[in-house]
């Protein structure tokens, strides 16, 4: 039963094509973390509830713990590392998270930033309730969500040229 056949996958991750041979049961989060060593994506519950493992799949936020790497073959994945500036410094949304101190332990943060990024891509000026719905599938135990909501408002304000 431990005979794990491997399958070729070819996934564009943060703009770079990555190819590997993986067992079918390898989840996308484990592929990103263990195979590619992109450890910014975190596993929190591994059953699709907490949202810590959120990544963008072809631009849409998904939970990488309830998706196998083979299912992402031929698709584009963006992780938290891919939202930083090319030199690794925080991108605009990440910078807003710093300004509002929207993180404490940092464990849920990558998933939150991914969820917020996806929201702002489709809704550049969200209302507070829309922000809460967009991050409603991402659990945070440190912040009570207040400063995360503030950070997303701040980023939206910069997006639309309005102060938050």
């Amino acid at each position: 039963m431990s005979d794990d056949r491997v399958y070729p996958v070819s996934i564009e991750v943060n703009g770079t094509l990555r190819e590997a041979q993986v067992p079918a049961r390898l989840t996308l989060v484990d592929f990103l973390r263990d195979t590619l060593r992109l450890t910014g994506t975190h596993a929190g519950c591994e059953h699709g509830i907490c949202g810590a493992c959120s990544v963008l799949l072809d631009g849409e936020p998904v939970r990488s713990c309830i998706m196998y790497a083979v299912q992402a073959d031929g698709r584009k994945v963006t992780t938290i590392e891919g939202l930083a500036q090319p030199d690794g410094r925080p991108g605009a949304l990440q910078d807003a998270f710093c300004e509002a101190h929207a993180t404490q332990c940092g464990y849920c943060t990558p998933g939150m930033v991914i969820a917020a990024h996806a929201l702002l891509e489709t809704n550049p000026a969200p209302a507070e309730q829309e922000i809460r719905e967009a991050i409603g599938g991402n659990l945070c135990r440190c912040t009570g969500y207040q400063q995360i909501v503030d950070a997303i408002k701040l980023a939206a304000g910069k997006n639309t040229g309005n102060a938050a």
Binding site: R33, G40, G106
Partner: peptide
């Protein structure tokens, strides 16, 4: 003031135990 820790956390560059290989 901004914190010293936040920049690494928001970019996914924290170093947690599961990141240690």
């Amino acid at each position: 003031r901004r914190t010293k820790e936040d920049p690494r956390f928001v970019t996914g560059r924290g170093r947690y135990v599961a990141d240690i290989a």
